[in-house]
């Protein structure tokens, strides 16, 4: 028990999420029959087929459930309109800007707070209190202060993405090898040099995980803001389509939002994997 970890509030959360009990599972892999890729494609096709057939034969009410072909043609219709692309760019702009601000703020504050036991102790309870406050609680304030301009969207996006980032960075900084830290100190490295050569390389994979989680949350909040507050973007376009009774278009835009989410996930998972490939540590991640 001599080196039991310090009881900080970040620790349990970062501790068990997604970190499996048994990472060394070695179940035999059978390569019988269809490959996962083929099966996955079949699954997607089945989903499309169900959405074609079920409304047609009346299992699903066609008023609320357009068929796949209807959704598909609505989607084609959308991508032919320049307004759609403007809206998409608006969404991506709010997302990217908010994510960038949150990431920089999260990394800087995370490294500063994480580097000092005292600062960690002082801020722990506050972070733990503020973090679970749902970002949507800020909606009324955002509306009052900024209306439908991009700032209101940014407020929500930054708030939600910032904490994802901060928690991961704090966890990463705590993972720094104390011997490496002491070595750097013994050679009288400056604070900046210690961060540059010791803290940052250790924390980098955590930063990447934080970035992936933040990116997903940021997209959700960007679209939500557009939907609820009415900032221009895909979310707003969707709200308009729904209220004007364009059901197929509404579904098409949901598909767009989903595809956007898939792309964001894939890209950031790829980046994370690249960053992780040389880092042996197994880590947990923190919930949304």
């Amino acid at each position: 028990m001599s080196n039991s970890p310090p009881v900080t509030v970040y620790e349990p959360a970062a501790d068990n999420a997604d970190a499996g009990v048994a990472p060394q599972s070695t179940r035999p892999r059978r390569s019988l029959g269809a490959s996962p890729v083929v099966l996955g494609a079949i699954g997607l096709l089945a989903l499309v087929a169900l959405f074609e057939i079920l409304p047609r034969i009346g299992v699903l009410n066609r008023r609320f459930f357009p068929t796949s072909t209807e959704i598909g043609s609505a989607l084609i219709d959308q991508v032919q309109q320049s307004e759609f692309w403007v809206a998409l760019l608006d969404t991506l702009q709010g997302w990217a800007l908010g994510l960038a601000i949150a990431a920089v703020a999260g990394v800087v504050l995370g490294i500063i707070i994480g580097s000092s036991q005292l600062l960690r102790d002082i801020t722990a309870s506050t972070i733990e209190f503020v973090r679970p406050i749902p970002s949507v609680a800020l909606i009324p304030l955002a509306v009052l202060l900024f209306g439908t301009s991009i700032e209101s969207k940014l407020l929500l996006v930054v708030y939600a993405a910032f904490f994802q980032m901060l928690i991961q960075v704090l966890y990463g900084v705590q993972d720094v090898d104390p011997v490496a830290q002491d070595t750097a100190r013994a050679y009288r490295f400056s604070f900046v040099a210690r961060v540059r050569y010791v803290t940052w390389p250790t924390a980098l994979p955590y930063v990447m995980t934080g970035l992936r989680l933040s990116a997903a949350v940021a997209l959700i909040l960007a679209v939500t803001a557009e939907l609820v507050i009415g900032n221009p973007g895909i979310g707003n376009r969707l709200a308009v389509a729904q209220s004007s009774g364009a059901i197929a278009a509404t579904y098409a835009l949901v598909v767009v939002a989903g595809l956007l989410g898939v792309i964001v996930n894939l890209v950031f998972r790829f980046i994370e994997r690249r960053a992780l490939s040389w880092h042996p540590s197994q880590r947990g991640e923190v919930a949304v």
Binding site: I42, G43, F64, G258
Partner: peptide, 22 residues
Amino acid sequence: RDLLEPVLEFFRAIPPPVVVPI
């Protein structure tokens, strides 16, 4: 799992609030 994974990935990636209108 192989069959449903892409489908589930898609559903998970949909920002949940956008299904409210539907």
